[in-house]
Amino acid sequence: MAETTTGGQLGEVMAELAALEDARVREANEKRGDHHGVNLGRLRAVAKRLKTQQDLAVPLWGSGDTAARLLALLVCRPKAFGRDELDGMLREARDPKVHDWLVNYVVKKSPHAEELRVDWLADPDPVVASAGWALTSERVVKKPQGLELVALLDTIEAEMKDAPDRLQWAMNTCLAQIGIEHAEHRARALGIGERLEVLRDYPTPPGCTSPFAPAWISEMVRRKGE
């Protein structure tokens, strides 16, 4: 009976997502590589109503539909996934928004996060490796003990300039966080950013902080009053 109920609910939720499809939203999202047409505010409203439902999240993810996968990440229980499940999900998550939400909303809350961080950091797939760098940035800020920051800077200096876009962005974030959070490495982080010039010309709206690492580091340090 529970299985039938879940199947029926899955169909209802998929129909609701289909009804929320907006051609203009899809057009804008697809320019960023995200293949869905559901406004994220409306998607979050659906998730808020459904609340946490791991039994629903699993088939939503399994549908392969991008909007359904985003909803799955909002209603799942992050600690319910095994290490291999998360690894498989990450390797399937090619849309940037699905990838970002999976790492930030699920993997970071998982007891397997550190093991996956180490494995993904060394993965030859640049999209997978970018998840390892995102988790490393989290540790740089919240739990740097045991991290070899000098070695991370060495890798960034050697590889970031020519890295594919998503991996480059993740490495750049780690570079900035090292410079912001660790004063003893700040001068080197600033120097690497200046020499490599990654994201120097990235279009930044007024009032927002540039992702160019030297500008980012300097602004956040200024705000901290250091």
Rank of each mutant, 00 (worst) to 15 (best):
H35V: 13
Q53M: 06
L73A: 02
P111A: 01
V107S: 05
C76F: 04
N39A: 14
G41A: 03
E85W: 02
P78R: 10
V106C: 06
V38C: 11
D125L: 02
K48F: 11
R83S: 14
L86F: 03
E30R: 15
L86S: 08
R32K: 10
D119W: 15
V128I: 14
G82T: 13
R94C: 10
G33K: 11
V107Y: 07
H112T: 05
V128R: 02
L43H: 10
A28I: 11
P78Q: 08
K108H: 01
W101V: 09
E27S: 14
V107K: 04
V46G: 01
S110L: 06
H99T: 05
A72D: 05
S137G: 14
V118T: 15
P96S: 04
L102H: 02
Y105D: 14
D123E: 09
H35D: 15
K109Y: 12
W61M: 06
K79Y: 07
R94F: 10
M89W: 14
G64P: 01
E30N: 08
K97R: 15
A68K: 03
S110W: 06
R83P: 10
P111E: 09
L43E: 09
V118I: 15
V118A: 12
V106S: 08
K51G: 01
E85H: 06
A72H: 01
T136K: 04
H112K: 01
S63K: 03
D125S: 06
L70T: 04
K79C: 08
N39M: 07
R49G: 14
G82H: 05
F81S: 01
R91G: 11
D123L: 09
K97A: 13
T136W: 06
V46I: 15
E115T: 13
D119C: 09
E85C: 00
E27Y: 12
H112I: 03
P96H: 03
L56N: 03
D65V: 05
L135R: 04
D125H: 04
K51H: 11
Y105L: 14
K109E: 15
E85G: 00
V46K: 08
G88K: 05
D100K: 03
L116S: 05
F81I: 07
N29H: 14
D87R: 13
S110V: 08
S63Y: 05
R83M: 14
P124G: 05
D87E: 13
V106T: 12
K51Q: 13
L135T: 09
D65Q: 08
A67E: 07
A93H: 02
F81N: 03
A134S: 11
L74A: 12
K31P: 04
V103L: 07
R49I: 00
A68T: 03
A45R: 05
A134Y: 02
S137N: 09
V58W: 07
